[in-house]
Design a protein around this nucleic acid. Structure first.
Length: 254
DNA sequence: AACATGGTCAACCGCTAGTTA
DNA sequence: ATAACTAGCGGTTGACCATGT
């Protein structure tokens, strides 16, 4: 069996993502989900390979990503899990809500590995990692885990700390309400079960998307100072509203 | 001030496993 | 059964930044 080519190398853009590309990707996934990464960039109008889009979404754009420094508790968890799981970063990430395997891998190689090695060389007192007394921290640790999960879905800071923001709330570009207007109640169930032969429905979806894309590209006015404020409000509102979270959770997992 | 060095992290590469036709 | 394809994973790279000399 021959290895399938990752993507068409010719004409595919590489390197850091621009805010425009991020916005296109996030808007597209809001509308259609990501059932087929390979086809996604073509339909979304992105000059990226599907793999790159997937990585960008999973490691950076996903709404439940928790940004910022790892807490001592998280670091402790990583060290403990690494001891039992080894370099299975995705398995470790599964135990840390809002953290990606890539991020955990990075923090392991840059901080934690050294710390563990040092500890082992010193004879290793495993009770106090990062200056934390494990015994006294146990209950607090569990509480922190709980609050960590809540924060993951409610804190607007995780988005404001991100380099990239999206002006989805800006009326001139594309508000969530705009997207919702395009996406009626039955959209997701219809879309998820869409029959490939149903060209009419697909055509309509394409038209909706192209209209959205057109608007965003035409405007092409990135005023970052405004963007940050509006963006933060948007995400805060989005993730503090149960109704919206439910709607958002309809995006199919891959 | 200029350069060297090391740390950080986003993104890419190549492989494997799973799924579909 | 198997070829073709996709998603996901872990390792690696390279750009950028901070700090040291």
């Amino acid at each position: 069996m021959g290895r399938a080519p990752c993507c068409e190398k010719m004409g595919m853009k590489r390197g850091p993502w621009t805010p425009e590309e991020d916005q296109i990707l996030i808007n597209y996934i809001h509308l259609y989900g990501h059932s087929n990464w390979r086809a996604l960039p073509k339909h979304a109008g992105l000059l990226r390979c599907g793999k790159s889009c997937r990585l960008r979404w999973i490691n950076y754009l996903r709404p439940d990503i928790k940004r910022g420094n790892f807490t001592p508790q998280e670091e402790e968890t990583i060290i403990n899990l690494h001891e039992s799981l080894g370099n299975r970063w995705s398995a470790i990430a599964a135990k840390l809500p809002g953290r990606t395997d890539n991020e955990i891998k990075n923090v392991w190689h840059t901080h934690l590995k050294k710390r563990v090695n040092k500890k082992q060389n010193n004879g290793g007192d495993t009770k106090d990692i990062n200056g934390i007394n494990e015994t006294s921290q146990t209950t607090k640790h569990d509480e922190d885990k709980e609050s960590m999960i809540v924060e993951t879905t409610t804190s607007p800071q995780q988005f404001s700390s991100s380099i990239t923001t999206f002006d989805i709330s800006n009326n001139e570009i594309m508000s969530y309400e705009d997207i919702s207007a395009l996406v009626d109640e039955s959209f997701w169930s219809d879309f998820v079960s869409v029959d490939n032969s149903n060209h009419h429905k697909e055509k309509k979806l394409e038209e909706d998307w192209e209209g959205l894309l057109d608007r965003n590209i035409k405007i092409n006015s990135y005023n970052n100072s405004e963007l940050y404020n509006d963006d933060m409000e948007f995400w805060f509102e989005l993730f503090t509203s149960n109704r919206r979270i439910e709607e958002f959770s309809d995006i199919p997992e891959c």
